[in-house]
Write a protein that binds this DNA or RNA. Sequence first.
DNA 1: TCAGTTTTGTACTGATCAATACACAACGGG
DNA 2: CCCGTTGTGTATTGATCAGTACAAAACTGA
Lengths: 193, 193
Amino acid sequence: MARPREFDETAAVEKAMHAFWERGYEATSTQDLCEATGLGRSSVYNTFTSKRALFRRSLTHYTSTQLDRRQALLDGPGTAAERIAAVLDSAVEDDLEERRRGCLVVNTLAELGLPEDEVGAALQADTDRNLAMFTECVREGVLDGSLRDGLDPAEVAEFLLSTTSGLRVMARRGTSRESMHAVADIALSAITR
Amino acid sequence: MARPREFDETAAVEKAMHAFWERGYEATSTQDLCEATGLGRSSVYNTFTSKRALFRRSLTHYTSTQLDRRQALLDGPGTAAERIAAVLDSAVEDDLEERRRGCLVVNTLAELGLPEDEVGAALQADTDRNLAMFTECVREGVLDGSLRDGLDPAEVAEFLLSTTSGLRVMARRGTSRESMHAVADIALSAITR
DNA sequence: TCAGTTTTGTACTGATCAATACACAACGGG
DNA sequence: CCCGTTGTGTATTGATCAGTACAAAACTGA
């Protein structure tokens, strides 16, 4: 019944996500979002309610794919130390353009902080899942002997999240791939033996 | 000759800086800046030309005071390792409210990236000075024996800048003082012996 | 074919944006 | 004292902001 959509909703969210990622939340106008998605204003508002709601959709789309990728690396082959190294390396993009965009979560946290709405909740959820994933992997690393004895998994998880966040900021500073790699190596040396 | 100013320019810049720090660049309107500084629109534009120019003034005011404070810590007493520890600790504010604001430089980098104007130049200059200060101190630390042998001072400087940036992002995430302290300790353990 | 439902395009809303015009106020030098 | 210069307050600029009203369009089920 009724007229069907002329577009794919997920594809539209993905395009909106890239617009927000490129310019930040405030600097992205609803007009920008229409152009990025190829939709008219009516379709955007009919489907996503508001700019902020579309941003929340974009953000959760970003975090879920990013967390899945990270989880896959942490569930991959090798010692825990090697898997953590793979995660740190994955923050180091090959392409300068990509590196310059940084991370949508870090960018949003820096621009908006933790707002008291669903956007803030999405950011908090991302933090929690990251910490949980890292904590678990560190626990495994202490057992498999690839990480040092006596490490507090929760503390190391905070350290690793801080490190990836720091790397993303360095990326926005225009830091070279080589320098970012060196930073990742030093960070890793703090917890491996 | 002519009518004198009714306000202190530096004080106005400082108040504008806090407004930008609190809300970010885009979300801070010229109206907000008038209210924060207590000046009328005419005075603001007569004195600072444009919103962006006032932002640049605010940013350089922030970076210069922050760099001076950091330099003082790195020039202070104790071994290089102790002085670097003092810098990392200084990123951990006592007050939650202050911590939540994060760092104006990190926030701006995340929101705007490195724009091709004087704002970008100010951000780049801040990065350069930070790296230079850290590099010098690490060199001293290798000599005084408080840091490990064989460390590349330039690489460690990037690591330390990345770490402080990461800590500021964690602060925006709402991370506790204790967790941030633990992160700083782990980071330090990578370079001390 | 047509009634019912949803999408879409166009035009528009009031609000707010950064920036300016301009008259008047306030001072210093002569 | 008063002319020239600069600062300040008020009103306003056109542009753009997020969001909406509304009618035509496009489809489904009957």
